[in-house]
Nucleic acid binder design. Structure first.
Lengths: 148, 148
DNA sequence: TATTGTTATACTCTATAACTATA
DNA sequence: TATAGTTATAGAGTATAACAATA
């Protein structure tokens, strides 16, 4: 009995290998950041976006996080309840919100960002430094080309 | 108001760009195969595996499809009900099963395989032929290195 | 006693429609 | 009348534990 199946039927598909590689990629995140700090990938991403783009609106997060508007509301609810993020009313437009990191949120965001810088090393060890850069740049090129 | 947020906080993460690229990758599958043939990605992958590995057992599919055993049962249930796959008892071991494509399943598997050969062209258009090969090979290398 | 596959069940994630409040 | 955000709800996907049949 074979222990590894022949994947010849899907070997030609970038999408297949992308989906497969995503599994250990998510595990790396979970082990280094997700579990220790109780952050889901999308929550981590939101913190990272707020670190660099303070004051963005939920409306702007919909395309950036690739998540529908109602989910952004729930996402911000959770982070606001943990006092990591706060909602501020837009002074000119009473409908719109500005999202800001609290002091606590800022500290956490900086900490997990620092941790994230080295967390993928083991996972990517099989690739040379040049290959890692190449892989990331090809993925970025692919994404930046399509509708962001 | 900026229309594209600064992703500087996550730019260094291969896992982030992998997850992001996976979104249009799934859309390509859905448009070309998923919707027209009512196949989910995991169902398509199972058909492709059976095309090359006839007679595999659900047990073998668990690691290959990265899906827990009960989900394999339900997956095979659906495809068996559509008369694409059939379960055969192992003659030597009454517990084990062999999964086979039916004639109908074989025909569908061959058809969607043929379609899949060209379906990613538009999506990957921004990459040169060499870059596409490079991307796929880096992803395969990354996966083959870790536990399959 | 261990293994293959199944059943039952709970949990999370995701998507959509309807609503509010402001403009 | 349109827009930002929220509420409510339903559907799909995922994970775990308990079970039946065979070894």
């Amino acid at each position: 009995m074979k222990h590894t199946l022949d994947t010849a039927g899907v070997d030609h598909l970038v999408g297949f290998w992308l989906a497969v590689a995503d599994v250990p990629g998510r595990r790396v995140f979970r082990q280094h950041i997700g579990q220790p700090f109780e952050l889901k990938p999308v929550e981590f991403t939101l913190l990272m976006l707020l670190l660099v783009n303070p004051g963005v609106s939920p409306k702007q997060l919909v395309p950036a996080l690739r998540v529908p508007a109602p989910q952004v509301t729930l996402l911000v609810d959770r982070l606001a309840q943990r006092e990591l993020v706060e909602r501020r009313r837009n002074a000119r437009d009473g409908r719109a919100l500005h999202l800001m990191l609290t002091a606590k949120g800022q500290a956490l965001a900086e900490k997990v960002h620092r941790l994230s810088l080295g967390m993928e090393q083991d996972w990517l060890q099989v690739l040379s430094p040049g290959e890692r850069v190449m892989l990331r740049e090809l993925l970025m090129k692919l994404t930046r080309a399509s509708a962001d």
